[in-house]
Structures are given as C-alpha cells and as structure tokens.
C-alpha cells in the first residue's frame, strides 16, 4: 500500500512540469479570457465588469461579422483541399516512391512548413504581384490577362488560401505518410489475391485504415485555419476592403490597436465556442467516441 502511494506520488511529480505548463499557458489563460470577456479592460487599468455588453457588441460589429465569414470561407477552402492533397501525395510517395527520390521529395515538401509566415508572405507577394508577378507572367504565356490576385476583393482570400495550402500540405503529408506505412502489408497482399486493383486497395483499405489519422489532420487543419492571422496580415493586411480580414486579425486589432482586451477576449471566447462546435460535428462525422 505504502509502495503504491509512493509510486503515485512519483507519478504526479513526473507530470508536474507539463501540468504547470498546460495550466499556466492554456487552462488559466482560457479561464481568464472568459472572465475578462465580461469586463472593460485596457490592461493598464483594473477591469470593470460590464456583463454581456462585449458579446452584444461583438454580434453587432460588422467588422467581426466580415471576419467571421472570411474565416469560415477560409476553413471551407483550405481544410478539404490540403487534406486531399496531402493524402494524395502521401499515398503516391508511399506506393510509388519508396526510394531516395521519395525521401528527397518529402523533405522538399516540408520546407514551406518550416518557413516563417513572414518569409512565405513576402515571397508569395512577389509571385502573386499583378504587374511582373511570376504567376501572372506564366498565365500570360497562355494568353490570359493578368489577375489582380491580392488587390481584388474577389481573389485576395483565395490567394491567401493557396499560400496556406502550400505551407501546410508538407506537414500533413508526413502524418499521412507515417499512417500509411503503419498499415499492415498483409491487408494489401490479401486484397491483391482477391483481385483488388490499386484504386480498390486505396478506397477499401488505405482510406478506412487512415480514419483516425484523417480525423487528426482535419482537426488540426480546422484549428489552424481558424487561427489564420500572419499570412493575411502580411500579404493583404485584411484588404482590400474587408475581403481578407480574419477573426484572429479582428481579435489582434481589438487587443493591440484599440487596447480593448475585454472585447478581444469576448471574440476569442466566441471563436473557442465555434471551434468546439465544429469539432463536435467533426467527431460525429468521423464516428468517434469519447474514451
């Protein structure tokens, strides 16, 4: 009994550093944001309780509304495309390129992941430039007129989505690749014996076996997409007009430009609720059960 208690104590001590980190940088800040969202607070002076006023204002604020709509569009565009692309590339590399070239390609595709958003944004501003941009020069070869990628409200958000997909695919590719390599080879051998072709093997074995991995990729993709800020801030500043303003940009502006921390916290709590709801829906879609 004494030995058990000693082991339990040791266990708690071992998890203590992680627990303190999670409590300090995740749980307590979320709780504090929740509290501050009911206050008028500019950081320097004491918070003043204002009840639901911040939430009422957030729901009426057309800037926030535009940011929410843009962010939802961004999630709907980036998450499915980056998931499909990374799965496709991972499957291709796992099946067709189990060699040095495949390793090289995987490394190359991971480079955008480690590139900073500022660097990526700057490079892509050059690529997407209207006059003299690389992309417009390429499409010009095929006789198309130059597109005002970042300066037109119809294309600015899509341009940011393209860059985000380019940046994220490498990361999710590695996750999918590891998942595919974990699928027992015997399943494919049995399927081949039964006469299944490559596509049937992919849709009947690979995809179902990757369900937990796909769920993880979608979850991460949704969370990251809702947090989009730096690319938009760097590439368009949320413009032209409000066409590429995102919800985190709205939170940032409220907190650091307007010094309205309470208001920013209310937006952050709204974002938290939206992500939780979407995650719950996603769990239903993937048929996941809580352990």
């Amino acid at each position: 009994m004494k030995q058990k208690r000693l082991e339990a104590t040791q266990g708690y001590i071992y998890i203590l550093p992680s627990l303190i980190l999670i409590l300090s940088f995740s749980i307590i800040p979320i709780f504090m944001s929740g509290v501050f969202s009911f206050t008028e607070y500019n950081v320097m002076n004491s918070p003043k309780f204002v009840g639901l006023e911040n939430y009422e204002k957030v729901l009426r604020d057309e800037y926030v509304r535009a940011a929410l709509v843009n962010t939802l569009k961004y999630v709907l565009i980036t998450v499915p495309i980056q998931t499909a692309l990374s799965l496709t590339f991972a499957a291709f590399l796992a099946v067709k390129m189990q060699n040095k070239s495949g390793e090289f390609l995987r490394s190359v595709m991971f480079i955008p992941v480690i590139a900073s958003a500022v660097t990526s944004g700057t490079i892509w501003r050059t690529i997407l430039g209207t006059d003299g941009g690389i992309l417009n020069s390429i499409i010009g070869i095929f006789g198309f007129d130059p597109v005002n990628w970042l300066g037109d409200s119809k294309t600015s958000l899509i341009s940011i989505c393209i860059v985000a997909i380019w940046k994220n695919v490498g990361y999710f590719l590695v996750i999918f690749y590891a998942g595919i390599m974990d699928i027992p080879k015997s399943l494919y051998e049995a399927a081949r014996v039964d006469g299944a072709n490559t596509y049937q093997q992919f849709f009947r074995i690979t995809l179902p076996m990757l369900k937990p991995i796909t769920s993880l990729v979608v979850t991460l993709g949704i969370i990251w997409s809702f947090q989009v800020f730096d690319l938009s801030y760097q590439m368009t500043g949320g413009g032209p007009g409000y066409s590429s303003v995102t919800i985190v940009m709205a939170i940032y502006n409220a907190a650091f430009k307007q010094y309205k921390m309470g208001y920013a916290c209310a937006m952050a709590m709204l974002l938290l609720v939206i992500v939780l709801i979407i995650n719950a829906v996603k769990q239903r879609v993937f048929g996941e059960k809580e352990d």
């Binding site: 005002n148 970042l150 300066g151 037109d152 413009g239």
Partner: peptide, 12 residues
C-alpha cells in the same frame, strides 16, 4: 488599371 494592385510605388 488597378490602383489596389500596387503595394510599392517606388518600383514603377
């Protein structure tokens, strides 16, 4: 043609 396309006037 596109006033919102330019982000650096020094170049043109």
């Amino acid at each position: 043609a596109n006033a919102t396309a330019c982000d650096d006037v020094k170049v043109p």
